[in-house]
Simulated assay, not measured.
Amino acid sequence: MEILSSAPHTLHLFAEYACAAIEFISIIIILCGVAAAIARGLRLALSRRRAAKNEWLHLRLSLEETLMLGLQFLMAADIIGTISNPDLQGVIVLTVIVLLRVVLSFTLSREVAEMDRREREAEGRAPSDEKHDADEPRSKNTHYPKGR
């Protein structure tokens, strides 16, 4: 009977250690992402050739992805902490982290779509060309007129 009476305390203690470990992992992820972004940015800034706008966009996107991953770990830690010790402050922190993640996800998806559009334009293909390409199967003999 003594084991069952100490179970809630043991579970709470385990949740505290799990939260601390997951928060530590999120800090490491974010720090590594920021360090990699700084190194990559310095390389772009100090390179002899002029960096394309696309390269800076890729840098921002990779940093945002890293931040999202770190926020996911923080959200996991806060969920565990809120479940094991529900209080108003924990719920507020969890809400703020979820909102930040939603905003970052929205921003990231918009920027990825914009980057894809720019890359298509740089290749000389307009979005209307894709629909045309999808309607017609590609073949090796493209020299024949359409009527054949």
Score class of each variant (00 low, 15 high):
residue 9 H to V: 10
residue 65 E to G: 03
residue 43 R to Q: 13
residue 109 S to I: 09
residue 117 R to F: 12
residue 39 A to N: 09
residue 112 V to W: 04
residue 16 E to A: 15
residue 1 M to T: 10
residue 88 L to G: 00
residue 95 T to F: 13
residue 16 E to K: 15
residue 65 E to Q: 10
residue 46 L to R: 12
residue 138 R to E: 09
residue 89 Q to T: 01
residue 145 P to S: 12
residue 136 E to T: 11
residue 96 V to Y: 01
residue 142 T to D: 13
residue 91 V to E: 06
residue 133 D to R: 09
residue 98 V to P: 01
residue 136 E to D: 11
residue 2 E to W: 00
residue 16 E to T: 15
residue 71 L to P: 01
residue 135 D to E: 11
residue 28 I to S: 12
residue 22 I to K: 03
residue 87 D to Q: 07
residue 16 E to W: 14
residue 20 A to C: 01
residue 52 A to P: 14
residue 24 F to W: 10
residue 66 T to S: 14
residue 98 V to L: 12
residue 68 M to W: 03
residue 123 E to V: 10
residue 116 D to F: 05
residue 26 S to H: 05
residue 62 S to E: 10
residue 143 H to Y: 02
residue 148 R to I: 13
residue 70 G to Y: 03
residue 118 R to Y: 07
residue 121 E to V: 06
residue 94 L to A: 08
residue 23 E to K: 07
residue 82 T to C: 01
residue 60 R to C: 05
residue 119 E to W: 07
residue 51 A to W: 07
residue 3 I to K: 03
residue 97 I to R: 03
residue 10 T to I: 14
residue 33 G to P: 00
residue 10 T to D: 12
residue 108 L to H: 08
residue 119 E to P: 02
residue 72 Q to S: 05
residue 73 F to C: 13
residue 9 H to L: 14
residue 68 M to C: 10
residue 5 S to W: 04
residue 117 R to Y: 13
residue 11 L to M: 14
residue 18 A to H: 06
residue 118 R to M: 14
residue 135 D to C: 04
residue 120 R to M: 15
residue 91 V to K: 04
residue 94 L to N: 03
residue 21 A to H: 03
residue 9 H to S: 10
residue 19 C to N: 07
residue 77 A to M: 13
residue 45 A to S: 06
residue 42 L to H: 01
residue 67 L to T: 13
residue 23 E to P: 00
residue 29 I to N: 04
residue 11 L to C: 08
residue 85 N to Q: 07
residue 18 A to R: 08
residue 56 W to N: 06
residue 92 I to W: 06
residue 53 K to V: 11
residue 30 I to C: 04
residue 99 L to M: 08
residue 129 D to M: 04
residue 87 D to E: 12
residue 30 I to A: 07
residue 131 K to V: 10
residue 115 M to E: 15
residue 18 A to Q: 09
residue 6 S to M: 05
residue 91 V to L: 11
residue 8 P to T: 15
residue 3 I to Y: 00
residue 106 F to L: 09
residue 64 E to I: 14
residue 66 T to P: 04
residue 33 G to W: 02
residue 23 E to Y: 03
residue 76 A to E: 05
residue 89 Q to A: 05
residue 77 A to S: 15
residue 148 R to T: 09
residue 51 A to R: 12
residue 44 L to R: 05
residue 59 L to P: 05
residue 38 I to K: 02
residue 68 M to L: 15
residue 42 L to R: 03
residue 124 G to E: 13
residue 6 S to F: 04
residue 77 A to K: 11
residue 135 D to I: 11
residue 101 R to H: 00
residue 143 H to T: 06
residue 20 A to H: 01
residue 65 E to A: 09
residue 119 E to Q: 15
residue 111 E to T: 08
residue 36 A to T: 09
residue 59 L to Y: 07
residue 118 R to I: 12
residue 21 A to T: 08
residue 94 L to R: 03
